[in-house]
Design a protein around this nucleic acid. Sequence first.
RNA 1: CGGAGUGUGGCUCAGCUUGGUAGAGCGCUUGGUUUGGGACCAAGAUGUCGCAGGUUCAAAUCCUGUCACUCCGACCA
Length: 481
Amino acid sequence: MAKEENKKMVEDITSMDVDFAQWYTDIVKKAELCDYSSMKGCIILEPAGYAIWEMIQKDLDRRFKDTGVVNCAMPLFIPEGLLQKEKDHVEGFAPEVAWVTQGGLEPLQEKCCVRPTSETLFCDYYAKKIHSYRDLPRLQNQWCSVVRWEKTTRPFLRSREFWWQEGHTAHATAEEAQARTEQMLNIYADFCEQDLAIPVVKGQKTEKEKFAGAIATYTIEALMHDGQALQSGTSHNFGDGFARAFNIQYTDKDNKLQYVHQTSWGMSTRIVGAIIMVHGDNEGLKLPPHIAPTQVVVCPIMMNKAGVLDKANELADRLKAAGIRVKVDDRDKTPGFKFADSEMRGTPVRLEIGPRDIENGEAVLVRRDNHEKVVVKIDGIEKAVADLLEDIQASMLAKAKEHLESHTFSAATIDEMEKILDENTGFVKAMWCGCRECEDAIKEKTGATSRCMPFKQEHIADTCINCGKPATKMVYWGRAY
RNA sequence: CGGAGUGUGGCUCAGCUUGGUAGAGCGCUUGGUUUGGGACCAAGAUGUCGCAGGUUCAAAUCCUGUCACUCCGACCA
């Protein structure tokens, strides 16, 4: 049974068609994912939001470790001198670092910044640890928060402190570093598709958009429901630039001194914003089953009646034993309230169990993504629920893919691109000559920035959309968060 | 950093024009009745009106400053 037509199941959430930004904020607040704090620009990750982040951490961490990466923890502070060792890097980050100038009652001899990212710390450390080709590759990661003094902030999407992981690797050869850069980007892309049900475009950033200090930056770009792009994960190849700045050298098999080749890669709590904006609807959050902290919420009906709550707990225990994350909502609230509440919080499946069902040996399953309701036998309910969760996961990915495809356009001329962006929202694929002037001009004319030069190149035209000179790349353009 | 807007119980807001004992709805607490799409009845608790100055016999209300948040833009992994 589909939901009744036009019936809004959850009140108090601004419709996304009316005001997407307000809708986003409403979801964040009402699903209690995060809250504002007394520290300007810094958010509080509330239990519901942190639980999602923990699921993401668990999954990504396993994927990293499967490739030989190990975890560690680096300092929160970076001395000024260390930050300044790599020229491009410090220039890129200088406008947004926070400085500590006093310790206790005394001014510091050398001020230090709160890490905006930890390349310099890892480099300083790797220089001490790496001596021989036998020490390579070095594959480390840390889960931490970093600080960037942003001027405008939005929950999850941009805050002054945010949580992420940053992986830092050192390799003997340029080829190995390049392979690792691509490998990690692929892990992010797979994770997004398989676990977050978010399809992404994989590609390389332009010179203008690349990371400060990198020779190449790769990105996965996701498309939000409002047609704006969100950079969802990045992987950088540093070549030997940092190694030269920090003097990270090893002796190779031929007893020659060589510089290492490095990479770094990260995904942040920003991805929670992507989950909200890709899957959410006017009823609230919609969590992909693979990373939903609670996959099934059991709603007992007439739970004061003898046996109902017992049966609800029994069912929950059975599902738990089958490896499903389940909670019983035994709060003293009406069923209707609990239904709306779980929808707002995005729980993929609701299980209703009441006297009528118990008598028939049945339970009611309702899926969050399309409100479909099915009655199932309690016998074998574990499989029914597990199958349903996988079906929801697949449907959510299919729906998101459909949205991405239907909001990706091609333009052969700048006029065509302007027209497309006037009438639609989303990505525009267009040819580019490769120069900075054209990239800036396209932004000026259309409001869209280059999101990436996709690995899957297509031939749309022979010439750059802006200057008419021969094109070198097909680029995804779009407005971005 | 520029433009616009908003700060009054946990939340959403009224009150401000024209100064005179702090309001409503929701939520919360307790008891009871309820329960298949946001229940009902009864009794309660909760505020230095963002902050700091000023004007005044008297300020949520008028004036000045300041801080925070939201939206738009600029900037920006």
